[in-house]
């Protein structure tokens, strides 16, 4: 096995030191090393967005970044979205609007939506659809997801 490298990062506001192999993607590191399995593996080619996390506030496909590249960066994953037992408004609205069926795409959609609302608190429908274009859902037809994000923005704004 290749030499494991020490990576110092911040995940959901907690400083984290971890060891990983240079060939491991950040997605593999999150799931297999840190056992943070909320972030999902989809296509592994950057097309589906299921593995979306935020790196320094920007949405990124964690399958297209090496774990070692996280050194010194601030990561946000689905595990950090709720505050204790209290769901984030986006999570609550996804439930209210039935914006998920199988749920594999949901963590990625929520993180992309969070990045959008952090940047544009009251987006238009076109802005929501544009910012979620990198996330694929094969169950819902997208409409319920878009409505949930708009509703969450309305409530928070």
């Amino acid at each position: 096995m290749a030499k494991r490298t020490l990576v110092e990062t911040v995940i959901n506001n907690e400083p984290v030191e971890l060891l990983c192999e240079p060939r491991q993607s950040l997605l593999e590191v999150l799931r297999d090393e840190l056992h943070m399995t909320g972030t999902k593996e989809g296509c592994l080619t950057g097309d589906c967005g299921a593995c979306t996390i935020l790196v320094d506030g920007r949405p990124v496909c964690s399958c297209l970044m090496l774990g070692v590249e996280a050194q010194g960066h601030k990561l946000e994953t689905i595990e950090g979205l709720a505050t204790g037992a209290e769901l984030h408004p986006l999570q609550r609205k996804f439930l209210e609007h039935a914006s998920l069926q199988c749920g594999i795409c949901t963590p990625g959609f929520l993180m992309s939506a969070k990045a959008l609302l952090d940047k544009i608190p009251r987006p238009t429908e076109a802005e929501v659809r544009y910012h979620l274009a990198g996330n694929l859902c094969r169950c819902t037809g997208y409409d319920k997801i878009v409505r949930a994000v708009l509703d969450a923005a309305r409530e928070s704004g």
Partner: peptide
Amino acid sequence: IGSLQIQSR
């Protein structure tokens, strides 16, 4: 180029 996720990188 690609999605916003891709454009971030």
